[in-house]
């Protein structure tokens, strides 16, 4: 059985990611090589306190979101869903908003957990509805997801409006790395662990995507697997939304790119998925920093444009092919 990883593609993507990371470290307003910068910040300080954390945050977030997309697509048995736009993201934001309301001083980990809990429920509800949509029309599931995400977002907006927390909600709803500094992003390393769990469960996830009958026939506890998948997606959502905010379409575009060539065998696809996701988000962040230097365009906005355009291309291409 050829279940080898697609080594050349992985190597190529890893190199690209390394180049992007190097670029990310040097691009920014502060001068990295100034001995005694006019602002009094040394280059090394800037590197360690700001640039490196930002770069790592983008890599971790991108990899996690791409993995979450892959997992979500096996759960929904639909290759066009992206958790961040299908209600998981806005549910996480709603949960974080609620805990901020009830316990303003709660530590960030607790907020992430609350976000994950609500994201779990919100995604469960979405999958419940998605199951009843006719499988012959795969476009209805992402369509439902986007509008469902909007409805959950409206609930969050109403609460935020009432509680005067609109600015906070905006921060969680629009992904941005400009606020990432040392001490404020380390929670994201949890997502690396979640990625490892997904890799460990990869074969079972693939079987899940083949449908319940196949999964049960192969001796899988179908319900338990669904739960595990949901927990992975929800935790990734909670952690990323609380630290950097919602970044749309990564979970859709990356698996779509990979699925075409590598296929849907999760174990084969996952490493490349993580690398490409990291590259996409880091690249978009760098683009956002350069577009209107020295001002920044948030990465969520950049990917809103890039991701929506790519998604549109996928939809129209698939529709043309019939």
């Amino acid at each position: 059985m050829r279940r080898l990883l697609p080594a050349p593609a992985i190597l190529g993507t890893a190199l690209l990611l390394a180049a992007l990371a190097a670029a990310s470290l040097v691009i920014g307003v502060g001068d990295l090589f100034a001995r005694d910068g006019t602002s009094g910040v040394s280059g090394l300080m800037l590197l360690l306190a700001s640039r490196l954390p930002r770069t790592l945050a983008a890599i971790l977030t991108g990899a996690a979101l791409a993995i979450a997309g892959t997992v979500m697509q096996t759960l929904a048995k639909n290759r066009f869903v992206d958790p961040m736009t299908a209600g998981t993201g806005s549910s996480a934001a709603l949960g974080i908003l609620l805990v901020t309301l009830l316990a303003p001083g709660a530590p960030i980990a607790l907020k992430a957990l609350a976000g994950s809990a609500v994201a779990f429920l919100g995604t469960l509800l979405f999958l419940r509805f998605a199951r009843d949509l006719p499988p012959t029309e795969p476009f209805l599931v992402p369509l439902f997801g986007i509008v469902y995400g909007g409805v959950v977002g409206a609930i969050a907006a109403a609460i935020a409006w009432e509680a005067d927390l609109v600015q906070f909600l905006d921060v969680w709803m629009n992904g941005e790395f400009s606020g990432v500094i040392r001490g404020r992003y380390e929670l994201l390393f949890v997502t690396a662990l979640l990625g490892a769990v997904a890799f460990w469960a990869a074969d079972r996830l693939t079987i899940l995507s083949l449908g319940r009958a196949t999964a049960v026939g192969l001796g899988l506890d179908h319900a338990a697997m669904l739960r595990l998948g949901l927990v992975i997606v929800a935790l990734i959502a909670g952690v990323t939304v609380v630290t950097v905010g919602i970044i749309p379409f990564v979970g859709l575009v990356v698996p779509a790119l990979i699925g075409r060539r590598v296929g849907d065998d999760v174990r084969r696809a996952l490493p490349l998925t993580a690398l490409l996701g990291a590259g996409l988000v880091l690249g978009s962040d760098i683009l956002g920093r350069l577009l209107r230097y020295p001002y920044e365009v948030p990465v969520g906005t950049v990917l809103g444009v890039v991701g929506a355009a790519a998604f549109l291309a996928i939809v129209l291409r698939r529709a043309r092919l019939g």
Binding site: S209, L210, L218, G259, D264
Partner: peptide, 20 residues
């Protein structure tokens, strides 16, 4: 079951029969 929507190779699909 209606269709296998998944983008798996034939060999991979058959191989998943060995999962148990």
């Amino acid at each position: 079951e209606g269709s296998v929507a998944s983008r798996l190779r034939v060999e991979e699909l058959v191989g998943f029969g060995r999962f148990p």
